[in-house]
Amino acid sequence: MFKWNQHKSYLQIVTFLFSTLLFSQSDVKLSSFFLTPLTHNPAYAGSYEGISITSLYTSQWVGFDGAPKTLFFNAHGTFFGPNTGIGVEVMHDEIGVTTDTKFLGNYAYHLQLNENWRLALGIKAGAVWYSVDYNKLRIQNPNEFNNFEGTLTSINPNLGTGIYLHNKDFYLGFGVPNILNSTYIDSYNTTLANSRPNYYFSSGYKFNLQDDISLQPSVLFRMVKGAPLSALFAGTLNWQDKMYGSLNLDLNATAGGFVGIRFAEKFLLGYSYDSSINKFSGSNGGIHSFFLNIRLEDFWQRERCGCYTF
């Protein structure tokens, strides 16, 4: 029979591998999804009439060792003409002993369907660095598992696409950030994780309550093979494009809110907090997100997209 410390070692490794497999099947999900629309749809690039630069840091499941931490950076705008959108993204995600880093470019072409409607077609391409640091594993007797040492890094291509229909008050989008199936293996050809395509459907409508106040309900659905349908909802108040407040809901997972203040015309600082509403609600400190957006003026004088343009 195995000794207890051997049982514990096997249990830790199996738990690690299982959690890694589950994690890598799905993209990072944020309840404040409206803050980073370029992440799940490349056709969003250039939907803002100027240049928009966004940074977002989020810490999830506060209080757990190895809890997810994610840093987003993206910038997009219109270049070479009023119908051409270009954007770049960097995303670094940490969970447990794994890190996932993406460097991506986005291109979108915006078609003027009529006086009110525009349709954008987009593509996303880049590379993904997936790493596992075995040195962070707590193994009781390291001599029993000589294969589990050092850091393993795997590089895979990323290719995505999307479509975006909008006018000044409404938007409807479909995006697949990565259409490729990727397999991450170690030096012994052991499969550590599999990455599967995530399919996103998004929509929202802006209601003008008064001349200087608007309310925008929005929704994001995510589908991925092997996982249940994910539905996220948000309702955002906007006062004079200077103050923002929203209530956010990820069904069966989290509920929370976001507040943001724009100053000096170009800068927006924001913070969101989400709390678990499932059986884990008493076991973690929630999700904290810090947001910074910089907007530069429009050169082409285009009609702004009805979506909140971050």
Rank of each mutant, 00 (worst) to 15 (best):
Thr183Ser: 15
Met243Tyr: 15
Asn194Asp: 13
Thr36Val: 09
Ser154Phe: 06
Ser289Arg: 14
Ser47Leu: 06
Ile86Val: 15
Gly122Ile: 00
Asn293His: 10
Phe201Glu: 01
His110Glu: 07
Val176Gln: 05
Lys8Tyr: 11
Val28Ser: 10
Ile51His: 13
Val128Pro: 01
His166Phe: 15
Phe23Cys: 01
Gly46Asn: 12
Tyr44Thr: 10
Lys69Tyr: 06
Asn106Met: 01
Asn208Trp: 12
Thr36Asn: 14
Val132Leu: 04
Asn74His: 14
Phe80Ser: 13
Asn238Ala: 06
Val259Tyr: 15
Phe170His: 04
Val259Met: 13
Gly235Asp: 01
Glu89Pro: 00
Asp250Gln: 07
Val259Lys: 10
Phe299Arg: 14
Asn278Tyr: 01
Tyr10Gln: 03
Thr78Phe: 12
Asn167Glu: 10
Phe174Cys: 02
Pro228Leu: 02
Leu121Pro: 03
Leu11Pro: 01
Asp250Lys: 07
Tyr130Asp: 06
Gly204Leu: 03
Phe201Trp: 01
Asn114Arg: 06
Lys29Gln: 13
Gly256Met: 03
Gly173Tyr: 01
Val176Glu: 07
Ala193Gln: 08
Leu152Arg: 12
Ser202Leu: 02
Pro157Ser: 04
Leu269Arg: 09
Tyr48Gln: 14
Gly226Ala: 14
Tyr199Arg: 02
Leu209Glu: 02
Tyr48Asp: 15
Leu229Lys: 10
Ala234Tyr: 05
Gly85Leu: 04
Lys124Asp: 01
Phe201Pro: 04
Val14Trp: 07
Thr84Leu: 06
Val224Arg: 05
Gln12His: 11
Asp186Glu: 08
Tyr184Pro: 12
Ala227Phe: 14
Phe263Trp: 13
Pro228Gly: 04
Ala231Met: 02
Lys3Asn: 04
Leu209Gln: 02
Asn284Lys: 08
Arg222Lys: 07
Phe280Thr: 13
Trp4His: 11
Ser26Glu: 07
Phe170Pro: 08
Ser182Cys: 03
Ile155Cys: 08
His110Lys: 09
Asp133Lys: 11
Val219Pro: 08
Ser281Thr: 09
Glu49Ser: 14
Lys3Asp: 09
His166Arg: 05
Gln6Met: 09
Ile139Lys: 06
Leu192Asn: 13
Asn198Leu: 03
Glu149Ile: 08
Gly260Ile: 07
Phe291Lys: 10
Ser289Trp: 07
Gly235Cys: 00
Tyr205Lys: 02
Ser187Ile: 03
Phe233Ala: 12
Pro68Ile: 03
Ala43Thr: 00
Phe33Tyr: 08
Glu89Tyr: 01
Gly175Trp: 02
Trp300Cys: 09
Ser218Thr: 08
Trp4Arg: 13
Ser47Thr: 12
Tyr164Pro: 00
Glu265Thr: 15
Thr98Gly: 12
Ile185Val: 06
Gly245Asn: 04
Glu94Ala: 12
Trp117Val: 07
Val28Ile: 10
Gly87Ser: 10
Ser19Tyr: 00
Phe2Thr: 00
Glu89Cys: 00
Ala120Asn: 00
Ala108Tyr: 01
Lys102Cys: 04
Ser32Tyr: 09
Lys29Ile: 08
Leu209Trp: 06
Met223Lys: 05
Leu292Tyr: 07
Val259Ser: 11
Ile123Phe: 00
Asp65Gly: 15
Gly46Arg: 08
Ser24His: 14
Asn147Glu: 15
Ala234Lys: 05
Gly66Glu: 09
Glu297Pro: 08
Ser187Ala: 11
Thr151Asn: 07
Lys279Ile: 01
Tyr199His: 02
Gly226Cys: 09
Leu137Gln: 10
Phe34Trp: 06
Ala193Arg: 03
Arg138Pro: 14
Thr151Pro: 00
Pro177Ala: 10
